[in-house]
C-alpha cells in the first residue's frame, strides 16, 4: 500500500514545519530502569524463541532432520488457539488446543512424510519441508480466510505489575518468561531423568545403537517429533495472543529459531536455551542501543535509520561471529 521510493526524484525537504525539533530525547532515556526493562524484554523474547528452537534442535539431534515446516506448526498452534478461544472464551482451553492440534499435525506429517526423509540428505529434507510450508500456509488460508484472526491474552493476565526498583512490567510478558523457563526445566528433567529421555539421548549419540537395544525407533521418532511440534504450537498460541495471528507468521520465527540452534550447537537443548536468550537480548538491546549510539555523532533521523538497519542485521552478525570462532556452535558436539 504504502511504500514510495524517493529514489529517482529527490523530494524537496518538507516545506512547512521541519525545524530543529530533534535532540531533545538523546541522553536522558538511557536510564537504568529502562535498561533493565529492555533486558526483561530480551529475556522474554529469548524464552519464547527457546520453545521453537527446542523442538527444532531435538528433531535434528535425534533424527538428523532439518525441518523448515517447524514454523508452520507454530502457525497451526496459533490458529487452533484462536479458533478455540473464539468458541469457548477460555484461554486455557485455547492453549490446550494449540498443544493438541500441533502435536496431532506433527504426528500426521511425521507418519506420512517426514519419516521417509530421515535417511535422505539435507537437500531433500530442505526441499520437502519447504513444500510443506507452501501446503500448510495456503491450506490455512483456505480454511480460515485471508484476514488475521483474533486472539487475546486472558483478562486476568492484563495490565502491568510493579517490580522492585520502580519497574513496571507487563504481567503477561512476565508470565511468558515464567512459563518458558518452567518448560525449559521440565524438558531438562525429562531428558536427563526419564527413560524416554535416556532413549532420546542415546538416539542423539548413536542412531544405530538404540535400534540394536530393542527400542522401537519409529515410535520414539514420532514421539520426539510430536513433542517438538507441540512446543512450537504452544509458542504460537502464547505469542499469538500479543501479536497477530496470520498466515505466514511462522516464517520469521523459523529463521530466528534456526539462528538460535546454530549458535547454541545443533542437538543441544542447553545450547538452544542459551542461544535463544543470546539472540533475544542481542535483538532487543541492538534495536534499543544502536540508534542511540549513532545519535552521538549523526543527525537524529539518520542515526535512528542507520541504527535500525544495523540492528536488523545484528543477530545474523552474531551468528556469523559465533560460527567463525566455534564452527559447531557454542555447545555443539565434538
Amino acid at each position: 500500500m504504502h511504500m514510495h521510493p524517493n529514489v529517482i526524484y529527490k523530494k524537496e525537504t518538507p516545506i512547512l514545519l521541519m525545524k530543529s525539533r530533534v535532540g531533545k530525547f538523546k541522553g536522558k532515556s538511557m536510564s537504568a530502569i529502562l535498561f533493565i526493562e529492555q533486558m526483561l524484554n530480551g529475556l522474554q523474547f529469548g524464552v519464547m524463541l527457546f520453545l521453537m528452537a527446542a523442538g527444532l534442535t531435538l528433531v535434528f539431534g535425534v533424527m538428523g532432520l532439518i525441518n523448515l515446516a517447524h514454523g508452520s506448526l507454530y502457525m497451526i498452534g496459533a490458529f487452533a488457539a484462536a479458533a478455540v478461544a473464539a468458541a469457548t472464551n477460555s484461554f486455557l482451553f485455547a492453549l490446550a488446543a494449540s498443544l493438541a492440534v500441533a502435536a496431532i499435525a506433527g504426528v500426521l506429517i511425521e507418519a506420512t512424510i517426514i519419516r521417509r526423509l530421515y535417511k535422505r540428505d539435507h537437500l531433500d529434507q530442505v526441499l520437502a519441508t519447504f513444500a510443506l510450508i507452501l501446503i500448510f500456509s495456503e491450506g490455512t488460508r483456505w480454511i480460515f480466510g485471508s484476514f488475521p484472526l483474533f486472539l487475546d491474552r486472558p483478562d486476568y493476565l492484563a495490565g502491568t505489575v510493579a517490580l522492585p526498583f520502580g519497574i513496571e512490567y507487563s504481567l503477561y510478558r512476565l508470565t511468558l518468561i515464567g512459563v518458558g523457563l518452567a518448560i525449559a526445566v521440565g524438558l531438562y528433567l525429562v531428558i536427563m531423568k526419564t527413560r524416554i529421555g535416556i532413549r532420546i539421548r542415546a538416539g542423539e549419540n548413536d542412531r544405530e545403537m538404540i535400534g540394536a537395544l530393542g527400542v522401537d525407533i519409529s515410535m520414539l521418532y514420532t514421539l520426539v517429533f510430536a513433542l517438538g511440534a507441540a512446543l512450537a504450537g504452544l509458542a504460537g498460541a502464547l505469542i499469538g495472543a500479543i501479536q497477530s495471528v496470520q498466515v505466514g507468521m511462522g516464517e520469521p520465527v523459523l529463521i530466528l529459531a534456526f539462528v538460535v540452534i546454530v549458535i547454541g550447537g545443533i542437538g543441544s537443548i542447553k545450547g538452544a536455551l542459551i542461544g535463544a536468550i543470546l539472540v533475544g537480548l542481542t535483538d532487543t538491546l541492538g534495536r534499543f542501543l544502536l540508534p542511540q549510539f549513532f545519535s552521538l555523532f549523526l543527525e537524529n533521523s539518520t542515526a535512528t535509520s542507520v541504527g535500525a538497519s544495523l540492528a536488523s542485521m545484528s543477530i545474523y552478525i552474531l551468528m556469523a561471529a559465533v560460527l567463525l570462532i566455534r564452527p559447531k556452535g557454542l555447545f555443539g558436539g565434538a
Binding site: V22, S29, S31, L34, Q44, I239, P252, A308
Partner: peptide
Amino acid sequence: DLAGEVYTKLGQTDYASEIAQIRAS
C-alpha cells in the same frame, strides 16, 4: 515537539522495546 523518533524492523512483531522507550520518553 518530538519525544522520540524510532524506525522499527520491517515485519517486526514484538514492540516491547519500543514501548519501553515510549514510556521512558
